[in-house]
């Protein structure tokens, strides 16, 4: 148990430290890299509480896909650091407000947990017991059996949001020459190559 405790504090400290660096790093690419480190150490914390499926999904989805897109965009930004400082005061009230709301929410969660012991007990007890059911299967039971319609509805909403984003940003540009693969494959030797007998000294 000592080793687990030490690992927990190591991961937790790195996660918090990296989280602070995400917002305080000057270079946005460094911020994204620290964000990745935060995700990674959080995955480690998930493994420690026995939620290995969540840990792996966190790495696959957030680190492997979402953060790559962040990085892709942030790398290409042409950033003027002086301009960024100027905007700081302007956006600070909103930032502080969001921060306070999040802090209050966190305190409320912690408060209820510490005020009523039974809530605390329910929180620390994985359902069902890890020895009986692997957590991949347990998650499947809940999501695909118990709440299948709600889960499908959430999926449909995301799909519609995606289609909406594509429809809104898609623009048809006239005069763009697109490659039509079927047309290229349908080309035959007869229509592509013409053989001409060239007489000496005449040309075509």
């Amino acid at each position: 148990m000592i080793l687990q405790g030490l690992t927990f504090y190591l991961f937790a400290a790195i996660a918090v430290g990296a989280g602070v660096m995400v917002v305080s790093a000057r270079n946005p690419v460094h911020s994204v890299l620290f964000l990745i480190l935060t995700f990674f150490t959080t995955a480690g914390l998930f493994v420690l509480i026995g939620a290995e499926f969540l840990a792996m999904v966190l790495v696959v989805v957030y680190v492997g896909a979402v953060a790559v897109l962040f990085m892709f965009v942030v790398m290409m930004l042409d950033i003027n650091f002086v301009e960024m400082r100027e905007g700081f005061l302007q956006y600070m009230p909103i930032g502080v407000l969001v921060g306070i709301i999040l802090l209050v929410e966190l305190l409320m969660v912690l408060g209820t947990a510490s005020l009523s012991p039974e809530v605390m007990a329910a929180g620390t007890e994985p359902i069902p017991d890890l020895a009986q059911r692997q957590n991949t299967a347990a998650l499947g039971d809940v999501m695909y059996t118990k709440y299948i319609y709600l889960f499908q509805a959430a999926g449909m909403i995301l799909l519609i949001a995606m289609i909406g984003a594509i429809v809104l940003t898609h623009r048809q540009r006239p005069g763009v020459r697109k490659q039509v693969i079927s047309k290229q494959l349908a080309r035959t030797r007869e229509e592509a190559v013409e053989l001409k007998k060239v007489q000496p000294g005449q040309g075509i």
Partner: peptide
């Protein structure tokens, strides 16, 4: 011999892009 071995492999292979992206940047 972990329960989510395949997911682990998938996760690790999806991280491979970072080496290249970081090097390039």
């Amino acid at each position: 011999d972990i329960n989510v071995g395949i997911l682990y492999l998938f996760a690790i292979s999806s991280l491979g892009v970072y080496g290249i992206v970081m090097a390039g940047w």
